[in-house]
């Protein structure tokens, strides 16, 4: 299998604090890859580096063999990297449909002028994008809430819209930061099913941060474990479950708690 993302010797520093310290791993095309670790381990920082919100201090990051380390976030989106946030970053006043349509913005070919005047190709193009958005609505079973302002939805549904907006980008790789946080068990089951479907029916590479170990072990093809910004484990769920350093990090955290 080809590597979708290759990270080598990645470090990220904020002043004197090393959020990530010489981290290396790779993510294979079409797999569900999970990032785990105790709180403050650097998981979200890693996603922020991949999506371009943080600029690493050193290292290399190749997406489909193209170096993306210094690339702007909106250019990475164009390459096919989409991101859903842990603390929901939806446009609250807009409807579900409009939030998802924004996910198609990167694929718009008509210029600002034609788009603004909404004529010719721009109009035709918007109809095409509408179809793509409808597919996402159907995929995530959001038909009933399509015209509802997202700010009025429950937390679980907002999470689903957040994932939907990332899906609307039609990415090659989707980054999901705790997509199940704050959900009840049936919502978690639904989200797990959507993640499996993204992977199996859409062939997407999924990068997942999640605290529910049961979900992680069930879904993941490979797992990377971070602790205090260092990579302490990388492998299949079975390998991770038997990794003494990982066990120590988690048991240590529990004992400290």
């Amino acid at each position: 299998m080809n590597n979708m993302l290759t990270i080598e010797n990645l470090s990220l520093q904020f002043g004197g604090v090393k959020a990530l310290n010489d981290v290396s791993f790779h993510i294979e095309e079409g797999e569900i890859f999970s990032l785990i670790g105790p709180n403050g381990a650097g998981k979200t920082s890693m996603l922020n580096c991949i999506s371009g919100l943080y600029q690493p201090t050193k290292g290399s990051m190749k997406f489909q063999n193209q170096e993306i380390l210094t690339m702007k976030p909106y250019n990475r989106t164009g390459l096919g990297i989409a991101r859903a946030f842990q603390n929901i970053a939806l446009f609250a006043h807009m409807s579900v449909l409009d939030n998802l349509k924004l996910g198609r913005h990167i694929h718009m070919k008509s210029g600002l002028f034609a788009g603004g005047l909404y004529w010719g190709a721009a109009q035709k193009e918007e109809v095409e994008h509408r179809h793509a958005v409808e597919e996402v609505i159907e995929f995530l079973e959001m038909q009933d809430i399509r015209n509802v302002p997202v700010g009025t939805l429950s937390y679980g549904l907002q999470k689903r819209v957040e994932v939907g907006r990332a899906l609307a980008l039609n990415p090659k790789m989707i980054l999901l930061d705790e997509p199940m946080a704050g959900m009840n068990s049936s919502e978690k089951e639904d989200m797990a099913r959507y993640i499996i479907d993204m992977h199996e029916t859409k062939g997407m590479t999924v990068v997942l941060i999640e605290h529910d170990m049961g979900v992680i072990m069930d879904l993941s093809d490979h797992i990377a474990v971070l602790d205090f910004g260092k990579l302490i484990g990388f492998g299949t769920p079975e390998e991770i479950q038997n990794n003494p350093e990982v066990i120590k990090a988690y048991l240590g955290e529990e004992e400290a708690g």
């Binding site: 976030p73 909106y74 924004l102």
Partner: peptide
């Protein structure tokens, strides 16, 4: 509008 409401999220939408 998106750039106005949440510039960070807008950037990640490719805006």
């Amino acid at each position: 509008q998106a750039s106005s409401i949440n510039p960070l999220a807008a950037r990640l939408m490719g805006i």
